[in-house]
């Protein structure tokens, strides 16, 4: 005890101890399940995002110009591919219109409620990335839409290629996106995502539980033994649970193996989206369930 008091007489040691306790307290406070950020946080985030958007976009367009120059030779090939896709799209569009009309008519005939009809009517909000975190274990990025634009926590964020993450915290004019690479079962701050396979939405099911940073692959668990999922299938969100929207592309199945207890299968999923040099992202707004009862 006397030793401890001697230690405390050293002012530097004492301050270090106080600092350490304060640090643990702040971490504990920030780790707790907070619904909303405090106002100083909101103020600082909004201010910095406001300034950062002047830098991020011009830098992006300059970098994009040089990237375009180097990819000029691939342009012909890409154009060819796009033409084929456009032809396929035109063909499918006719089919889609018929199916949609039919679907609406059937919903009418079955007297669906307004809520059921609007359930899958998603709204895509276009947002600009304004900054990316420089912390290896927390690769969050800020976008320039916030609660004033209707962004809420847990909304899915995608690019044209696929899902990149979920909205984590919201301020009036910005939102922080946690990338899907932070997905972790044991982490207290991220939920798992229910997924299925494109083309067999009604028969395949799995849960994306964690991301392995060492192999850069997502781990999908809880796949039923009878599931016909195969390597190369496109993984999309299933929308079961009504938290995340359905039909967002995540990646492709790379391997499939028997899980830990031999009862279910697990699979590794390669991400479709890339996280470098992001500019526009889409925030998927799920129609509010309570106001359409």
């Amino acid at each position: 005890m006397i030793e401890l008091f001697k230690l405390m007489r050293n002012k530097r040691m004492f301050m270090l101890m106080i600092g350490f306790i304060l640090f643990i307290a702040v971490i504990g406070f920030s780790l707790s399940d907070r619904k909303e950020l405090t106002w100083p946080e909101k103020f600082i985030k909004d201010t910095s995002a406001y300034v950062q958007q002047w830098f991020y976009k011009p830098a992006g367009s300059i970098a994009g110009f040089f990237e375009d120059l180097s990819e000029l030779r691939l342009l012909y090939e890409e154009n060819e591919q796009l033409r084929i896709t456009a032809a396929a799209y035109a063909r499918d569009k006719v089919n889609y219109n018929f199916v949609q009309k039919e679907n609406e008519r059937l919903k009418e005939a079955l007297s669906f409620t307004e809520r059921q009809k609007q359930m899958y009517n998603y709204n895509y909000l276009i947002a600009q990335v304004v900054s990316v975190s420089n912390d290896a274990n927390n690769r969050s990025m800020n976008i320039n839409l916030g609660s004033k634009n209707g962004i809420k926590p847990n909304m899915a964020v995608t690019t044209v290629k696929g899902l990149i993450g979920l909205v984590d915290s919201v301020t009036p004019y910005t939102a922080t996106v946690t990338p899907i690479t932070e997905l972790d079962e044991s982490s207290p701050t991220f939920n798992s995502i229910a997924v299925t396979v494109m083309g067999r939405e009604d028969t395949s099911f799995g849960i994306l539980s964690s991301f392995n940073t060492e192999t850069q692959r997502l781990l999908m668990t809880k796949i039923a033994e009878t599931d016909t999922m195969t390597v190369g299938d496109t993984v999309i969100t299933s929308g079961l649970g009504n938290v995340y929207p359905r039909g967002l592309v995540i990646g492709t199945v790379e391997t499939k193996q028997v899980g830990d207890f031999g009862l279910t299968y697990t699979a590794t999923v390669k991400l479709a989206a890339s996280f470098d040099h992001l500019t526009e992202v889409f925030v998927v707004e799920v129609p509010a369930l309570e106001d359409a009862e």
Partner: peptide
């Protein structure tokens, strides 16, 4: 602290403490 708040993802305080110390 600025870094912790602007890029808040999981916890606040890690960068504050490490940089200061």
């Amino acid at each position: 602290l600025l870094q912790d708040i602007v890029y808040f993802g999981h916890l606040i305080g890690a960068h504050t403490f490490a940089m200061g110390l």
